[in-house]
Design a binder for these strands. Structure first.
Length: 677
DNA sequence: ATCCAACTAATTTTT
DNA sequence: TTAGTTGGAT
């Protein structure tokens, strides 16, 4: 921790290199910074913000910097604060989605939303879609998830249901288009937006309403975008609309690190920028401060196999360093054993710390063997991934209650809440309630307390429904006064802790879940205190969904762990020693990604992984591997053949043909010789 | 409403 | 292989 801080200070103290300086100081118009891996792009953004405020008279509150993840936004905020202190006050550094949320909150009426609107995450919208699909009597879950994907794509491309219904070509698309229209109507009725709406709604508003557009253009005078290659169509539109004809912005990106096209990212936004802004200035950052020349050379050679619209050549001054190792092993167990032994060996010989090692892989399942092995060896590790905080059931439950309290027409939340815990309100009763609510054009919760219901339901069912309605109304009032106390009271009213105990596989899981709930409450408590106003509760809850509360307890003592990451999760990070396992056909490139365009992204994925390494890089693959319970022979990844011959230590025996084998052997000798020349 | 057996599919993941 | 889902039976 301390060491990292010292290293950080050192970097800060050295002056930026000429292209970095140029990127920091160019403020005459739109600027594209093509920042290769490890070229100090975050530094450019941070120092540019400082430059804008200190040298160019930009007011901090007129500058907005956007990133894709909370983590990146947090990190940037911290570094800017360390740099500017008080002068950073009012500066907006947030994710694209948080920026969109701010716009939506400020423009509620124009967007046809009411205060306290709900934000649906992917799970919530899936639940809604399933519900709607059920009404239509269509659909296994696979079709519905395809629909969800399509709808999300359409939204990101700013296509409404009407446009889509004309475009839809095949059966699934037509189905999805029909579902899309219903979905949008439901969201509207629920006073809710989904994650994609957080961007697309502001965009559509800014496109159509000149007054609003001008307001935001006057509000934000300069925009900076990190990881620009990951933007999708609507995010790019948002940038364009906010910066308007002044076009005062800096975007920083690297086309070679675009690995999220499957999530809607449009790396071609880099090219589009040039045609949309003829005056665009482009600056390349090509000096890499992270890796040895050998590692960089190998990565460069690989990525040169992809077409490029911006040629760039990364170089390093950090010396040749060690050769890249390619290791062939008999099977997956052998591969893991090799990696773990290497790490242990290296640690002994070089006194490295465990946190200096990262093992990267394409798919999560590859980590399982590794985990088992590390557990057996009693080596501490940290693994990426896992269910995000807000996807956990106990958190979803509590959030559904909060959503319903703040937004009583959120029927999605109502459906989750009404029988959590069991209240003995069955499907039949709910059906009646829903039909009645529909006829009265109101939400499910409001319907519970309406008099008209008495003629449709009777006895126990009626009583329970009315009881629930009354109880929720009480809770609603309480929430406005003392939000945190009200939430605690709510949980004790429903005996939630008890319910968890009964619905968890073990006491331990129940305790963990309850702790998660407590954690969420304490986070809310903190925010309420910070806001200093209980009336802000609906704003606090809305922001909460966009935040990542995953409790990464990283206290000093168990900080020293081996890092286990997917190649995707490794982006933006660096490690002294990197092992990429499963460098095989079917795995990397993944078996589902063999069309030319997909291969290019897989290649970038390999490139991203390789460029994480500072000092040593090892690529391993297995000759045989158990797949789905069957042992199959594996081919080394085609990407291995795309590496330079120099500076790589190839395995003694490969699974290639004898001739290739021989060539490889000679290559090995050649590169070894070259190394020592 | 709940449980169990049979069946099936098998990347990457943030907001 | 295994995890997650579905549908049938209780």
């Amino acid at each position: 921790m301390l060491l990292q801080y010292v290293a950080f200070l050192l970097v800060q103290m050295t002056r930026p290199n000429p292209p970095q300086r140029e990127a920091i100081r160019y403020i005459d118009g739109p600027l594209l910074v093509l920042a290769g891996a490890g070229s100090g792009k975050t530094r450019v953004i941070i120092e540019k913000i400082a430059y804008l405020i200190q040298q160019c008279d930009y007011s901090a509150k007129r500058i907005t910097a956007v990133t894709f993840t909370n983590k990146a936004a947090q990190e940037m905020t911290q570094r800017v604060r360390a740099n500017l202190g008080e002068r950073a006050k009012g500066l907006r550094i947030s994710t694209f989605h948080a920026l969109g949320l701010n716009i939506i909150r400020a423009e509620l009426e124009a967007l046809n939303l009411k205060r306290g609107f709900s934000i649906f995450d992917a799970q919530d919208s899936m639940a809604l879609l399933q519900d709607l699909a059920l009404q239509e009597r269509l659909g296994d879950s696979e079709v519905i998830s395809t629909c969800q994907h399509l709808i999300s794509q359409w939204k990101n491309d700013l296509l409404g249901p009407e446009q889509v219904s004309q475009l839809a070509e095949n059966g699934v698309e037509r189905q999805a288009a029909a579902l899309y229209a219903k979905y949008e109507r439901s969201l509207q009725a629920y006073n809710a937006v989904d994650f994609d709406d957080l961007i697309s709604k502001p965009v559509r508003l800014l496109q159509t309403d000149a007054t609003v557009r001008e307001r935001w253009q006057n509000n934000i005078h300069y925009m900076l975008v990190d990881e620009y290659q990951d933007t999708n169509t609507s995010q790019y539109q948002l940038l364009q609309l906010i910066t308007g004809s002044r076009a005062m912005f800096t975007v920083v990106g690297d086309d070679d690190q675009s690995i999220y096209s499957w999530r809607g990212a449009r790396p071609e936004n880099l090219d589009i920028l040039q045609s949309d802004y003829p005056q665009l200035k482009a600056i390349k950052l090509e000096q890499n401060y992270r890796s040895t020349q050998t590692i960089l050379g190998a990565a460069n050679h690989l990525i040169a196999n992809n077409p490029h619209s911006f040629e760039k050549r990364l170089w390093s001054e950090l010396g040749l360093g060690e050769s890249v190792h390619v290791e062939r092993r008999a099977d997956e167990n052998d591969e893991i054993e090799y990696v773990v032994n290497e790490i242990l060996d290296h640690r002994l010989r070089h006194k490295s710390e465990l946190q200096d090692f990262a093992v990267l892989y394409r798919s999560n399942f590859q980590a399982r063997l590794l985990e088992m092995r590390l557990q057996a060896e009693q080596l501490p590790y940290r693994i990426s991934g896992g269910t995000s905080f807000f996807a956990r059931n106990e958190i979803k439950d509590l959030m559904a209650y909060l959503r319903l309290l703040i937004n009583p027409v959120d029927d999605g939340a109502m459906l989750r809440v009404i029988n959590t815990p069991r209240r003995g309100i069955g499907a039949q009763t709910l059906e009646t309630l829903a039909t009645y609510a529909q006829s009265r054009d109101t939400g499910l919760l409001a319907a519970c307390s309406e008099m008209g219901l008495t003629s449709l339901l009777e006895g126990k069912a009626l009583h329970k429904v009315q009881q629930f309605g009354r109880w929720m109304e009480d809770r609603q009032r309480a929430l406005q006064h003392e939000p945190v106390a009200a939430i605690k009271q709510l949980l004790s009213d429903i005996d939630y802790e008890d319910w968890l105990l009964q619905n968890s596989s073990s006491t331990a899981t129940a305790e963990r879940r309850w702790a998660n709930v407590q954690f969420l409450i304490s986070a809310i408590e903190k925010d309420v205190k910070a806001a200093g106003d209980a009336a802000e509760i609906e704003k606090i809850i809305a922001k909460l969904v966009l935040r990542d509360l995953l409790d990464r307890q990283e206290n000093e003592e168990d900080f020293d762990r081996i890092q286990l990451l997917t190649l995707h999760a490794a982006k933006g990070l660096e490690f002294k020693h990197v092992y990429i396992i499963g460098f095989e056909e079917e795995l990397l490139p993944h078996r589902n990604s063999v069309e030319p365009a997909a291969i290019e992204e897989e290649r970038r994925l390999a490139y991203v992984g390789m460029t994480r390494a500072q000092q040593t890089l090892t690529l391993s693959y297995a000759a045989r591997r158990k797949k789905y319970g069957e042992v199959v022979a594996c081919e080394p990844s085609r990407f291995l053949e795309e590496l330079p011959q120099q500076f790589i230590v190839w395995p003694a025996k490969t699974a290639l043909s004898p001739e290739q084998n021989k060539a490889r052997g000679e290559q090995t000798m050649g590169s070894l010789k070259a190394l020592f020349d």
